[in-house]
């Protein structure tokens, strides 16, 4: 088994242990479980940080070039935000929502038939890399908003029904949850917007239009619109509490559904299947007959990325 695959397994295991301990903690409140859960999450996060750092250093750019890397980055960003919030608020219950999401994001790579050594040359573009970087960072913040929103709805439900279960004691106050919802929305929305702008710039540059593939662009625009609505509502109209919580939960569900829908298409697109849409597909003979989109610096960029690809293809498993 190759080293990267071992890393992947360790991180996955760490997040699984972290998820289970956080869940059991919610119902049993055993401190040792929480210690174990946090240790597992931090270990997994450490390994993941090393993995991302090594990839960045070896390739000289952000490792956001295929599905595997997106999901690795996405889960890493979620855990990073959780640890930051934990450091500030000691909000253990949040982990019960965020850590399983990070685990799922990673696990999805393992169960879907993606060639992890695959490298989409179209993505060796600064604009597109930034588009993905900001989008996933924004979505990680929304994952947090989602977790916080669920917790708010739970806690409010208990206070309203006057049936105070054990969750009532574990979950923080409505005020803190609302504050966190506000903060993660306020940081997530600008990131998502930035991501969308980068994507549009790339699209304009390469395709000559923003709406080159409606089915792919639409979910992104819709989720952006939902968060824009929430952002304006919170900032301008003083929305808070249940409405904000419900909005963030729905928003994130739409984001996930949207990505599930366009993920496949994106994959196909970046491989070059969507070549007929418009733009300038650059079919390179060295790429085994498959067309690739190249932009900004067509020649040099493509060559360099192909070289990188051939360099890593010899390692079976996950490239570092």
């Amino acid at each position: 088994m190759s080293l990267p695959l071992v890393y992947y397994g360790i991180i996955l295991l760490c997040y699984l242990v972290g998820s289970v301990s956080h869940w059991v903690y919610l119902s049993s409140r055993r401190r040792e479980l929480m210690t174990l859960g946090m240790a597992a999450v931090i270990t997994g996060f450490g390994f993941q940080t090393v993995l991302l750092a090594v990839r960045t250093l070896r390739w000289g750019r952000v490792p956001l070039t295929n599905f595997y890397e997106w999901m690795t980055f996405f889960s890493w960003a979620m855990i990073l935000l959780y640890l930051l919030v934990y450091g500030r608020y000691r909000l253990r219950a949040l982990g019960a929502f965020v850590v399983p999401m990070a685990f799922l994001a990673l696990a999805i790579v393992g169960i879907t038939p993606h060639d992890v050594t695959e490298f989409f040359p179209a993505l060796d573009s600064v604009w597109l890399s930034l588009h993905i970087f900001f989008s996933f960072l924004g979505n990680a913040a929304f994952a947090l908003t989602f977790g916080v929103g669920i917790m708010y709805l739970f806690q409010q439900g208990q206070l309203k029904s006057k049936k105070l279960g054990s969750l009532y004691f574990r979950l923080p106050s409505l005020e803190i949850l609302d504050q966190l919802n506000y903060r993660s929305l306020m940081s997530g929305f600008p990131l998502l917007t930035l991501g969308l702008v980068m994507g549009s710039l790339w699209s304009l540059h390469v395709k000559g239009t923003i709406l080159w593939d409606l089915a792919r662009v639409l979910p992104q625009v819709v989720s952006w619109a939902i968060y824009a609505f929430l952002f304006v509502g919170r900032l301008g109209m003083g929305w808070r509490g249940k409405r904000a919580a419900l909005g963030s939960v729905i928003g994130f569900v739409v984001v996930v559904l949207g990505y599930a829908h366009c993920g496949e298409r994106a994959d196909g697109f970046f491989r070059g299947d969507a070549g007929g849409v418009s733009g300038k597909p650059a079919a390179d003979p060295r790429s085994g007959g498959r067309g690739h989109f190249v932009d900004l610096q067509p020649g040099g960029n493509l060559r360099s990325c192909l070289e990188r690809k051939s360099g890593t293809a010899s390692n079976s498993g996950v490239p570092v």
């Binding site: 806690q155 206070l159 009532y168 923080p172 106050s173 409505l174 005020e175 803190i176 504050q179």
Partner: peptide
């Protein structure tokens, strides 16, 4: 306690 769960601080 209820007040703290609603208002935090």
């Amino acid at each position: 306690e209820l007040a703290r769960k609603i208002f935090g601080s």
